[in-house]
Amino acid sequence: MTHRGGWILVALSGFVVVMAGAFGAHALDGWLAPRLLEAFETGVRYQAWHTLAAMAVLIWRGQQPLQGQRAVLWLWSLGMAAFSGSLYLLALTGAHWLGPITPLGGLLLMAGWLTLAWCGWRQQPAG
């Protein structure tokens, strides 16, 4: 992922956060069962936090490129797609087969945080 590509992905993720949040608050309230609306909102919340965290890593990477920062961004991108994406689709379609994808996305998000910790610990310049 290039630095430019990272900013494009973060911007698109931020767009999806705002769109999904508004859609959940205005179009889905009263249409979805409360449990499904809560799942949808959880997806929005996790995507929002990880989008902000990715912005911070991109800023850090612009100031001090280190080994591991790119991996963090990839893990979070894939994790957001799997975690939040599966919750959005589950809530909107009721497709319960998506359920196992959600924890996989959560594992990717957690792996990103652990990679960030490793990256900060090691402080090895990127090659």
Rank of each mutant, 00 (worst) to 15 (best):
A82V: 06
L90Q: 12
W97V: 15
T51C: 15
F40S: 06
Q124H: 00
A81R: 06
G106E: 03
R61Q: 13
S86H: 02
A48G: 06
M55V: 10
A91E: 06
L92S: 01
A27V: 08
S84Y: 02
Q67A: 15
A54P: 00
W121M: 14
L58S: 10
V17K: 01
L87K: 01
R61L: 10
G62F: 07
I59S: 06
A54I: 03
L73H: 02
G62E: 04
C119F: 00
L104G: 05
V10N: 04
R45W: 13
A56S: 13
A53F: 04
F23S: 01
G21C: 06
W60E: 06
P65H: 07
L66I: 08
V16H: 01
P65I: 05
F40P: 08
G94P: 03
G105F: 03
L12E: 05
W74M: 05
G43W: 03
L109E: 06
L108H: 07
W49S: 08
V72I: 13
I59A: 14
A20Y: 03
L28N: 11
L108C: 13
L36K: 13
L104H: 08
L109R: 09
V57H: 05
L58M: 02
P125I: 11
G62W: 02
Q69F: 10
I8L: 12
L89R: 04
S77C: 12
V16F: 08
V44P: 00
T102V: 15
G24P: 03
W31M: 15
Q63E: 13
L98S: 09
F15E: 07
A11V: 08
S86W: 00
A71D: 14
G120T: 06
H50C: 03
G120V: 07
H96M: 15
Y88H: 01
L78S: 10
I8N: 00
Y46K: 01
L90C: 10
A54R: 02
T51E: 07
G94N: 08
W76P: 03
S77Y: 11
L78R: 02
Q124V: 15
M55D: 02
A39R: 14
P103H: 14
L66A: 11
R122H: 09
A82T: 10
S84D: 05
A91W: 10
A71R: 10
G21I: 06
W7Q: 05
L104T: 14
G68W: 04
A117S: 09
G127C: 02
A53R: 03
A25I: 11
H96S: 15
E38T: 15
G68A: 03
W76T: 04
G94Q: 02
F83C: 05
F23R: 01
T115H: 05
A22C: 10
